[in-house]
């Protein structure tokens, strides 16, 4: 398991490094809401997927609510003020994931817009 994690991390580092070497522009990460994230930026960058995966199973399968890591809280803080979303150009999630070429699997099911109110009516 640890070996797997190391190799995934290495692969991820390599993915980050390749476009960097090729001179691709680094992603612009805009933090629009002031304040403190649940962990230092360095840790969040490296481990957010682990935190979310861990939380998702605890909440989904065991019904544990109010966890420290929460996808909805990510959106509430990090959605763009202009678009209201973490996706799209300059979107907090998409910007970096496009750069790293890592598929975003959350948003096929989760709502990427902050404060979205479902109405059940036709759009």
């Amino acid at each position: 398991m640890k070996l797997l994690r190391i190799s995934v991390a290495a692969l991820f580092a390599a993915l980050l490094a390749v476009p960097a070497l090729a001179g691709a522009p680094k992603p612009v990460i805009k933090i629009e809401s002031p304040g403190q994230c649940i962990a230092p930026a360095e840790e969040m960058r490296r481990n957010h997927m682990e935190m979310l995966k861990h939380q998702r199973d605890r909440t989904m399968r065991h019904g544990i609510r109010g966890e420290k890591a929460s996808l909805n809280e990510c959106i509430n803080c990090h959605a763009s003020k202009a678009t209201g979303s973490v996706l799209g150009k300059d979107g907090f999630c998409q910007e970096c994931h496009s750069y790293a070429a890592v598929k975003l699997d959350c948003w096929d099911c989760h709502q990427p817009k902050a404060g979205f109110k479902a109405t059940g009516a036709k759009p």
């Binding site: 099911c109 989760h110 709502q111 404060g115």
Partner: peptide, 10 residues
């Protein structure tokens, strides 16, 4: 794209 934030569906 009309999910309730608390009710993921996809």
């Amino acid at each position: 794209d009309t999910q309730n934030p608390e009710v993921p569906r996809g």
